[in-house]
Simulated assay, not measured.
Amino acid sequence: MNIDITNYLRLDLVDVILVCISTLIICLVAKHFFWDVILDYFDARHKAIADDIAAGEQARKDGEEYKVQYETQLASARGEAHAILEGAAKNANEERKEVLAKAREEAENLKQKALADIEREKVQAQKEMKQTITDVAFEAAEKIIKKELDEKDQQRYVDDFIEHAGDDTWQA
Rank of each mutant, 00 (worst) to 15 (best):
I25R: 05
D150C: 04
A83L: 00
D153T: 15
Y8S: 13
E64F: 00
C20Y: 11
Q171S: 10
S76C: 05
T6S: 14
K102A: 13
V14G: 07
I5S: 14
I145H: 01
A59S: 08
H46F: 08
R96E: 03
I5E: 14
N93A: 11
Y66A: 04
I25P: 02
Y66H: 08
R45G: 11
E98M: 09
M1Q: 09
K90H: 13
E57N: 07
D160V: 13
N2F: 05
I84R: 04
S22Q: 13
A59V: 11
E148A: 10
E151Q: 08
R10D: 12
E121M: 10
Y70A: 03
E94I: 07
D52S: 06
F34S: 10
K90I: 06
D15S: 13
A77Y: 11
E119F: 04
D135M: 04
D40T: 07
G166E: 03
L100K: 14
M129R: 12
E151H: 09
H32S: 04
A77T: 02
T6P: 03
D167N: 13
A114N: 09
F161E: 06
V16N: 05
E95W: 05
Y66D: 05
A92V: 09
D40A: 14
A50G: 02
Y8F: 12
Q124V: 10
N91H: 10
A59E: 05
A88P: 03
V19I: 12
D51I: 09
A165K: 01
V123R: 02
K31V: 10
H46A: 15
E148C: 07
A44H: 09
A141R: 01
G63M: 00
E148Q: 14
D159M: 11
V99E: 15
E121R: 09
Y41P: 01
K67F: 06
K97Y: 04
E64P: 00
Q155W: 01
A125L: 05
G63N: 04
K61W: 00
E139H: 05
H46M: 09
N91S: 08
D117H: 06
I21N: 00
D62I: 02
T134C: 15
F138I: 09
A55P: 01
D51K: 07
F33Y: 05
T134K: 12
Y70N: 02
K97G: 05
K130Q: 04
W170I: 02
A140S: 08
H164D: 01
A48F: 13
G166P: 03
T169H: 13
A101L: 06
C20N: 12
E119K: 11
F42W: 03
E119T: 14
A48Q: 08
W170F: 13
E86F: 03
I5Q: 14
N93I: 15
I5L: 15
E139G: 03
E148M: 07
L74F: 00
A75I: 01
A55G: 01
A81C: 02
I38H: 14
D40K: 10
K61R: 08
D153L: 14
A140L: 13
I144K: 08
T23W: 14
K152L: 03
D43S: 02
A92L: 09
A107E: 02
I162G: 09
Y8R: 12
